[in-house]
Design a protein around this nucleic acid. Sequence first.
DNA 1: ATGAAAGCGCTAACAC
DNA 2: GTGTTAGCGCTTTCAT
Lengths: 332, 332
Amino acid sequence: MDIKEVGKLAGVSKATVSRVLCNSPLVAKGTRKKVLDIIEQVNYLPNYLARSLKVKATKTIGVVVPDIGNPFYFEVIRGIEKILDKENFSIMLCSSDYNEKKEMRYISLLASKKVDGLIVAPVSEESKGVDNLIKWEIPFIVFDLPQKRLKINSIFVDHSKCSYMATRHLIENGHKNIIAIDFLKHSQASSRFISGYLKALNENNIPLKPELIIEEEANIMGGFKAIKKFLAKKTFFTGAITVCDLSAVGIYKAARKFNFRIPDDVSVIGNDDIPLSKYLNPPLTTIHQPSYLLGYKSAKSLLKQIQNKTDNNVEVTELDVRLIKRSSVKKL
Amino acid sequence: MDIKEVGKLAGVSKATVSRVLCNSPLVAKGTRKKVLDIIEQVNYLPNYLARSLKVKATKTIGVVVPDIGNPFYFEVIRGIEKILDKENFSIMLCSSDYNEKKEMRYISLLASKKVDGLIVAPVSEESKGVDNLIKWEIPFIVFDLPQKRLKINSIFVDHSKCSYMATRHLIENGHKNIIAIDFLKHSQASSRFISGYLKALNENNIPLKPELIIEEEANIMGGFKAIKKFLAKKTFFTGAITVCDLSAVGIYKAARKFNFRIPDDVSVIGNDDIPLSKYLNPPLTTIHQPSYLLGYKSAKSLLKQIQNKTDNNVEVTELDVRLIKRSSVKKL
DNA sequence: ATGAAAGCGCTAACAC
DNA sequence: GTGTTAGCGCTTTCAT
C-alpha cells in the first residue's frame, strides 16, 4: 500500500495524498478528510525510507559508545534520549566495545544509513572514525574523551583530573601503595587516567611503581580480574583507584571472594558515580561525572548544529567533576 | 558523490559500480580493482537509504522497552545487541516510559522507518501497538509481558510467579503485613504482579488489605515515594515486595532518610536481579529473571523469523525464575 | 562482462 | 487546489 493506491481509492492523485501527509495547507478541507479517511481505513503506513531519500534527512541520529552495558553510558543515553525525543528524532545505538576497528565500522555504517548526525564517545583520543566524519561532512559531536585535534565540537570531562583527585584523596588519607585499574586499550594510546594518577604521586613525592598499574576491561569482571592478578603476584597495596565504578564493584566482588575488607584492608575510589554507587556496601567513594548532562548537552548541541547549517563555530565544553566522599576509604 | 560519479571516474557505468559494491561475481577482475581504487580515493560512501528502498530491507531492527534507564532492560538490550551485531543488524532503540500512547507512536515510527523487525516489551498485556504490527505484517517478537491473544511469538517470564514466590518467602519468614509496590500503570490494566501476591496471601489465609498495595514509577524515586506515602499514613508493615530491583533500592534510600533498618525493621524482596543487587547494603534478596537471555533469545527468534519468511509457526517460550536469598529478609 | 533502463515510494517544482 | 512529472541513489532485469 503506497500513496498512489491511497490516491486511487480517494479519487485524487498521489501528490495530493503526499500533501495531506505533509500537512501542507494547499489542500481543500473536503479532500483532506476524504484522504484521511482512506488512510485510516486501509491502515496505510508512510514509507519514511522513500521520504528520507527525497528530502535528504532521516530524523535519526547515531550514538556510539564504548560499552552499552555500563550504567555510566546508560545515563548519558538517557540524557540524549530526553532531548531527542522532544524533537522527534530516533536513536540508532551502537556499542564499540572499546574497540577502534568496531568503532570505525559503526561510524561508517551509521553514515551510510544517512543519520542526520552522530554522537560518539570515541575509544581513543585520535579516533579514525571521527576523522572520516569530518571528511564526509556529517554533523557530529564527541563526548567523554576529548580529541587531540582541536577544532571539533566536543563536551567532556578531564579524565586526568578525576584520577588526580582520587589519588590525592587516597594520599591525604595516608595511602602510599595505590593500584590503578585502567580500562583495557586495544591500541597503545596514552591514558589520561594514568597521567592524573602520576601527577598526584609526583606532587607528593611518592615514587611510581609501574607494577601497580593494570589494564582490564572496564566492568565488574575486569575489576575482579585485576585484583586477582595483584593477589597472585602478592603485590602490596592499601588503596585502589579505578577508571569506572563498575571496575570498583569488581573489587567488591573480589573482597568477598578473597576475604579482605573494604575499606579496612583496602580503600577504593571509583570514577563516574553511577546511580547505584551510594547504595553499595560500603557506599562507594567516587568522582562524580555529570553523565546525564553529558548526554543532554551533547544532543542539544548536535541538534543546533543540524538545524542551523550555517553556524560553523565549534564548541568545546569541559564539565566539572567532584569528589564524592562516602565510606570506601579509610584513614591509615 | 554517488555511484554514477564513481562510475564516470572509473570509466564504467553505474551498474558496474553497483555490482562491485554488492560483491557480484559478474565483474572482471581488472574492472573491479579500478572501481575499488576510485572508491577508496574519493572516499565514497554508499547510500543505504536508496539501497534499502530498492531491496526492501534495512538490516535494522527496532527495540522498544518501557524504561531505558532500568538496568534490567539494559541487560536485555545487551543480549539483543550480542546476536544482532553478529548478523550485522543495527538497533533502533526507543523507550516507551511505561506509556501506551508513546509505545504506539514508537511502533508506528519504527514501522514507517521500515525496520526489518521489532522486539518489544509491551507496557500492557493488550498492546495496541502489537495489534498494528500484526495488521502491517511486520515480523516481531514480544518479551517480558506475555500478551493475552495467544498466537504471537513471545518469550517471557511469569510475573505473577515472581510476586508469588517473593510473597511466600516473606510469609514463611513470619511476615504478615507485606506491602506490594507495583509499577505505575497509565491505564487500568490488571496486574500479574499483584495477582501472584494475592495468591500467596490467599494460600496462607492472610486477609488482603488493599491499602498495602501501591503503584509508583518503577525506579528508585518511585520506591522511595511509596515508602514515604506509607509512612505518612502510618501504615504498619514488616515486609515489602517490589516490581523491580530499582524500586527496592528506593526502599533502601528511604531507609537512610527515615531511619529504619533493612532487614531489621523491614524485610524487602526485589524482582529481576540486576547485576548490582548482590553488592547493595544489605545484599538484596530478589527473584532472578534471565534478562540477558531474554534479549538473546528474542533476537535469535526474530532473526529466524525474518530470514525464513515461510516458517510461520509461532513460538511461545516461558523462562524460569528463581528466588535468590541474600540478606534483606529477616525471620520474625 | 558490461550498459541501458525501469522502478523502489516519496516530494516538490511546475503547470493548469 | 490539484495533477503531472522529474528526480532522490540505488539494484536488477534485459539486451548486447
